[in-house]
Amino acid sequence: MATSTTEGAAHGAEVAHEAGGIPQLAIETFPSQIFWLFVALVAIYFLLSRVALPRIGATIEERQDAISNDIERAADYRRQAEAAEAAYDQALADARAEAGRIADKTRAEIQVEIDAAMTKADEQINAQSAESEARIATIRDEAAVAVQAVARDTAQALVAALAPDVADASAIDAAVAARTNS
């Protein structure tokens, strides 16, 4: 180590002397430096432009495509989900409307039945009450006749008991009829 350093230093002193102190200005090394720089640059250029850059560019592009594809697919799924939700809502609304319609229909049918039954019942009630009125009228007439008969019998008995000589059946009947019919 020590010897190589001294050697380097010695060589350096020599070069430094020639180039005015700075190794960068040692003109005699320039052909070598420039030649090998060109070799390196050309090598790097071909490595990059022929192999690396197209490959990296393609990879990045593929990744972009894949990402935008995925985003598109996600948007697609979203649209599908939204369509499904809309369909569900529509079906729900339809079902509600159908249920309402069936309820209305059933109500109307029942109403018709009820109306029919009411009419029938009213008719029966009317018939029965007419019949009852007729019977009541008959009973009242019969009762009136019975009252007349009883009144006549009672009047005849009273007249016969109080004044047998003036007994007149027809006069009594007329009197009783006049009293009871009022």
Partner: peptide, 22 residues
Amino acid sequence: PMDQFIVSSLGGEGGPVGMAGI
């Protein structure tokens, strides 16, 4: 501090001189 910049032969002696040093 400037010795590190000296262009010199690896394994040989001295540095490249002119076109012959390529």
